[in-house]
């Protein structure tokens, strides 16, 4: 038996099979688009607005502290300054995927450089960016998997959009490789009374179907 340590959130024990959350999408390749900028612009705006609606929806369902966070994220997905930036990049012949990636990354770097609260919003922007790019590529949105049976969710880190919509009947516990006691995962795990271990570096080696005991004390 292998023991993996991290920072425990809450108290309790959960036992169950591991289901891993999909890893991040690769960075979109910077190649010239074969579509014209207007068409790419339509694609980008459509995906941004679908993701904004999804985030707002999740916020409405989640309520509480998560609602404000998700509503703010929905606004970021349809932010007029961001859309201006995307449009500017598309005019240079980039694909919608690449323009969305670069525009969010520019704001992410700006906010990360400010530190503190702004630094945390930087991670939110990465999450929104991934969702929009997944929608453009017609890939499943990154997020909490739904295997149809109770499971222990293992992820690199969880974004507010993920933790807010965890189905308590299915998610026995949470283990994240990154994140600390003040991460979104930890805050929302406390709010929803889900047993969680954050910053469990060695959890990266866990595979789907492994049985784990999550113990916090």
């Amino acid at each position: 038996m292998m023991e993996i340590k991290g920072t425990g959130i809450g108290q309790g024990v959960a036992v169950g099979p591991v289901v891993r959350m999909a890893e991040a999408l690769p960075e979109p390749v910077d190649r010239p688009s074969h579509l014209d900028p207007e068409r790419e612009g339509e694609r980008a705006r459509a995906s941004l607005s679908v993701v904004a609606a999804e985030l707002a929806n999740r916020g409405a369902k989640a309520g509480g502290a998560a609602k404000d966070v998700l509503e703010a994220q929905a606004m970021m997905a349809e932010d007029p300054s961001l859309i201006d930036e995307v449009t500017k990049l598309l005019a240079t012949g980039k694909t919608a995927e690449r323009a969305v990636y670069e525009s969010f990354a520019a704001y992410r770097d700006l906010l990360a450089g400010m530190g503190g609260y702004m630094g945390e919003r930087a991670a939110d922007l990465d999450d929104i960016s991934q969702r929009v790019i997944a929608h453009l590529l017609k890939l499943p949105a990154p997020g909490v998997p739904n295997p149809g049976h109770p499971f222990v969710l293992v992820a690199r880190d969880l974004a507010p959009a993920d933790t807010a919509t965890l189905d308590l009947d299915q998610v026995l516990g949470l283990v994240t490789v990154d994140g600390g006691p003040t991460s979104h995962t930890a805050i929302l795990a406390r709010e929803k009374s889900i047993v969680a271990i954050v910053g469990a570096t060695d959890a990266a080696s866990l595979a789907d179907g492994d049985t784990v005991v999550v113990a916090c004390r």
């Binding site: 932010d79 300054s81 702004m118 919003r121």
Partner: peptide, 14 residues
């Protein structure tokens, strides 16, 4: 001055 309807522009002002 930045667009007040842009949450990213507003929070980036610090």
């Amino acid at each position: 001055p930045v667009n007040a309807a842009s949450i990213l522009a507003v929070i980036a002002q610090g």
